[in-house]
């Protein structure tokens, strides 16, 4: 007789019964803090930009200076993520598969771009690549200018994106099964063939995830770029900088519009990462 009412009671419960206390307090605090600090301010941005409407957003995005900055940000971020993908794979491979003096130190240093404040990275990259800097001076002899051009943006974005690829790929390389390599070798494949056709495919999801993370980070990056970019409108001005410029001109709707577009790009990258990981779990059984 009592069972129906028990079922009804359980069905109404939000969380499964537990002897552990404090769910209401900690869950409530989590929701309130998350709501106040993150969700409400972000919702304000989306609400403000919905006031602009699609036509308003399109008008802002097609303003020549805004369009140029979005193109610059998008394409250079993509190029930087490609460079990070290539060298990140080599660095991850070297750090996981080989043992050599200084490997631990090198491994620890890969996280430097996470730990070094972006403004510091910005001024030191600018100092390195300025026409009389360590790298800038020899390059200037060949008439190559990096600082205060688009190449400078590329260098800064390569710097901040590298750890994303390395740290995503590293654990997967160390989990690669030696049996597969041995099987491939005993079946007559050359080493290069084994690496390309047996070992790289399982790394593809991690590489793609690392690439997307580096790209998403590069899209939003500000501090390390503005010192080395030269910030010439239409040429080397990135979208986050244009938000700051618009704010300084009290053009809040303009800044909101650019921010909304950038938010959409980074959410698209986030979605891509989740799709890749879901696919990878099905296909390879790991992330």
């Amino acid at each position: 007789m009592t069972s129906p009412s028990l079922v009804g009671k359980n069905a109404r419960r939000f969380t499964a019964p537990s002897v552990i206390p404090g769910f209401g307090l900690t869950f409530g605090y989590t929701l309130i803090y998350l709501g106040l600090i993150v969700l409400f301010p972000l919702a304000t941005l989306i609400w403000q930009s919905s006031g602009l409407g699609f036509s308003g957003l399109y008008a802002i995005a097609s303003e020549p200076r805004v369009a140029a900055s979005l193109r610059t940000t998008f394409f250079i971020s993509f190029a930087a993520a490609v460079v990070d993908l290539f060298f990140g794979l080599i660095v991850a491979w070297v750090l996981t598969r080989y043992d050599f003096p200084g490997r631990r130190l090198l491994d620890a240093f890969v996280d430097l771009p996470f730990a070094l404040p972006t403004a510091v990275a910005g001024i030191s990259l600018a100092a390195l690549y300025s026409p009389n800097g360590w790298f800038g001076a020899p390059l200037a002899d060949y008439d190559i200018k990096v600082a205060y051009t688009r190449w400078g943006i590329l260098v800064a974005l390569i710097f901040i994106g590298l750890p994303f690829v390395v740290r995503t790929v590293q654990p997967i390389i160390s989990e690669l099964e030696a049996e597969l390599e041995e099987a491939s070798a005993t079946l007559g494949a050359g080493r290069l063939q084994t690496v390309i056709r047996v070992m790289l495919p399982p790394l593809a999801p991690a590489l793609l995830t690392g690439f997307a993370l580096a790209f998403a980070r590069a899209i939003g990056e500000y501090g390390s770029v503005i010192f080395i970019a030269g910030n010439i409108a239409y040429v080397s001005e990135i979208a986050p900088l244009l938000i700051v410029v618009k704010l300084e001109q009290y053009d809040v709707p303009g800044a909101t519009g650019i921010a909304t577009i950038m938010l959409a790009i980074s959410f698209a990258a986030l979605l891509l990462i989740n799709l890749v990981q879901a696919w990878s779990r099905r296909r390879f059984g790991h992330v």
């Binding site: 972000l42 941005l45 972006t118 998403a216 899209i219 939003g220 990056e221 500000y222 501090g223 986050p240 900088l241 938000i243 700051v244 704010l247 800044a255 909101t256 921010a259 950038m262 938010l263 980074s266 959410f267 990258a269 986030l270």
Partner: peptide, 9 residues
């Protein structure tokens, strides 16, 4: 996944 500049904005 939010740009620092957007976070300020």
């Amino acid at each position: 996944s939010v740009s620092p500049v957007v976070a300020g904005l």
